[in-house]
Design a binder for these strands. Structure first.
Lengths: 130, 130
DNA sequence: TCAATGTTTCACGAGTAGTTGAACCATGGA
DNA sequence: TCCATGGTTCAACTACTCGTGAAACATTGA
């Protein structure tokens, strides 16, 4: 993934409403959610919602399709994953101490390869900060 | 990690110079780098550099310590990891398709548990986007 | 104490992002 | 064709961020 795409994605994510939007859409899976439903759930007025949705779509984090009168939005999982991958691998160089914080997620990523060694998600707060 | 901290971290990262800064500092490990050296390496004027460094420090992504005349900056690996962890787990709900994009990083996180199945980092671009 | 070096802070102007409400476009049903 | 509904775009304003250069501060050595 190109650097400029990552930057625009980070910039898109760096907003409370848009982070909520991504989170909500991820929970909705491929089915997605109509713009109106999103606005009702998040309590956003239509024009602002549309503004934020187009910012996220521009950044490659969500997708849209028209279904009758509704516009259905879905999370672009590959786009989101690409940003995370860039951050972890290209920016953080897969630094062990950074990745340790994502331990739980990493386990999911490997389809629960391991069973022992809990290494809880909030492990980060206990990391030595020399 | 709190939501507001994640937002300020994302906002801090959403800038070319600051992403470079984090990347550079991560490669320098605990030893870190003096502000002046950073400026020389990245070709940033002192005032701009200081501005960006303090933004990153405020966001909990880097740390500083004074050593004689120099101010040494280091990456705050726990802070960075915390943001990544929040994004993967709390925002993306550990969604398998998102995590699949971080496959290589995930493997590192598990201390090279697996040896086979390369699953290259740019796997994301090949993910089915239904 | 003074000068040199390293770094931060400040004031300013330019550009960009965010919010709001109204107007507009697209679609489907009467 | 007309109206209602669902979304988007626009204009205007505010607020914030960025970059620049000059000034200020901190530390060290002479």
């Amino acid at each position: 993934m190109e650097r400029s795409k990552v930057l625009s994605a980070l910039s898109a994510l760096a907003h409370e409403a848009r982070l909520d939007l991504v989170r909500l859409l991820i929970t909705q899976g491929n089915e997605g959610l109509a713009a109106g439903d999103i606005g009702r759930r998040l309590g956003l007025p239509a024009s602002r919602l549309s503004f934020h949705l187009s910012a996220l779509e521009q950044a490659g984090l969500i997708r849209s399709r028209r279904v009758s009168r509704n516009v259905i939005y879905t999370a672009d999982l590959a786009g989101i994953g690409g940003v995370m991958s860039y951050m972890l691998a290209d920016c953080c160089m897969d630094h062990p101490e950074v990745l340790a914080c994502c331990g739980a997620s990493a386990r999911h990523a490997l389809h629960r390869v391991t069973e022992g060694d809990p290494a809880p998600r909030d492990h980060c707060s206990g990391i030595t900060k020399t």
